[in-house]
């Protein structure tokens, strides 16, 4: 077996998985952050209580994703992060504000709670929009022409809708009563912009690169790939239907929304991965050109194989410990 061929492939998969998990998990944290201004004071505590035990570990998945980019593909890491310098910086500031507001809002005294709630929401929005911008710029090959910038801007305003939906979906699992009803409304409002985001991301890569277009639209590949758009469309239709049939959601099936969103995100990742492969930066660098030395990859490969299942195991355990509906915070 040729390690110099397989190891970069393994790490590309691991990076994709880490970023997918990040989007799903921190996506609901960020979504709840953006929804915060629309909730009453008591609901705010409840919403933050519902993500309190998880957010820190959720955020760690982006560190792993970027970490793998750095470890396994140092050439690409330098190019991507240099090209995305400004959106990365803005995202980091958003994540900083969001992360510290978690603690400050309950520890800095009641007089400042309003300010920290506002910063929590602002940080979540800034980070989400910046991530949208980064995604847009990345899938258009990091070009800085007008079309590229316009596209990045479009993703920047629509990706937050996905996070809002994830946030609503999380509330449908963790809450009941008035907040549950609000979450249904919030989620329904986010459906359309989220669909637009999905559509844009799907059509972008074939438009940017004729090679990618050929991969999708020539026979017989096109038939084999058909399940990806079909499943995505079905899941989206399912979301629309569920949001318009709240009686189902109320009778204990709130988790279906999160499940459908997970299906959509998984499909989008597979589609994106298929489009890009074997390139890591469209039109510039492929996986193997960008990869670190094989002996370095092998060293971290063993660490990943041992620790990643353990991480998934105790993440599952933590979610089990904190299962059930959330209640309001009662800091002493």
């Amino acid at each position: 077996m040729d390690l110099s061929f397989w190891l970069p492939l393994f790490f590309a998969g691991a990076m994709g998985l880490a970023l997918l998990i990040y989007v799903l998990l921190d996506g609901y944290d960020l979504g709840i952050g953006m929804l915060l201004p629309f909730a009453s004071e008591e609901e705010k505590d409840l919403m933050i209580g519902s993500i309190g035990p998880f957010w820190d570990a959720n955020e760690t998945w982006i560190v792993l994703g970027v970490g793998i980019l750095l470890i396994a593909f140092p050439q690409a890491h330098g190019i991507v992060l240099t090209a995305l310098y400004l959106p990365v910086t803005i995202m980091l500031m958003g994540l900083i504000l969001r992360g510290v507001a978690f603690d400050f809002r309950v520890k800095a005294g009641d007089a400042r709670k309003g300010m920290w709630n506002a910063l929590f929401a602002a940080g979540s929005l800034i980070a989400s929009a910046a991530q949208g911008w980064m995604l847009g710029a990345y899938i258009t090959g990091l070009s800085d022409d007008t079309t590229g910038l316009l596209f990045s801007a479009l993703i920047a305003v629509t990706l937050p809708a996905l996070y809002v939906l994830l946030g609503s979906a999380w509330l449908l699992i963790k809450t009941d009563g008035a907040l549950f009803e609000k979450a249904i409304r919030w989620g329904r409002n986010a459906l359309l912009p989220m669909g637009l985001c999905l559509l844009l991301v799907s059509v972008a890569t074939p438009l940017v690169s004729s090679v990618i277009a050929d991969k999708w639209f020539t026979l017989p590949n096109a038939i084999g790939l058909l399940p990806i758009p079909l499943i995505t469309a079905t899941a989206y239709a399912g979301l629309v239907w569920l949001f318009n049939s709240p009686v189902i959601l109320r009778s204990g099936y709130g988790w279906l929304i999160f499940a459908a969103l997970t299906v959509i995100c998984v499909m989008a990742s597979i589609g994106l991965g298929y489009s890009l492969f074997p390139e890591i930066i469209i039109g510039r660098l492929d996986l193997w050109e960008a990869a670190a030395a094989t002996e370095s990859l092998l060293f971290i490969f063993w660490g990943t194989v041992i620790t990643l299942p353990a991480i998934l195991g105790y993440t599952f355990f933590i979610y089990r410990v904190f299962r059930g509906k959330a209640t309001a915070l009662s800091y002493d």
């Binding site: 570990a57 792993l64 140092p74 971290i300 660490g303 990943t304 991480i311």
Partner: peptide, 28 residues
């Protein structure tokens, strides 16, 4: 990167997830 990358990677894998995850139990 061949040297710095794996060392940082082991930090994420063995430390960051461990502390961030069990912090939830520690606090709440």
């Amino acid at each position: 990167g061949n040297i710095a990358g794996p060392l940082l990677g082991y930090e994420v894998l063995t430390a960051f997830f461990l502390e961030a995850s069990f912090l939830g139990i520690m606090l709440f």
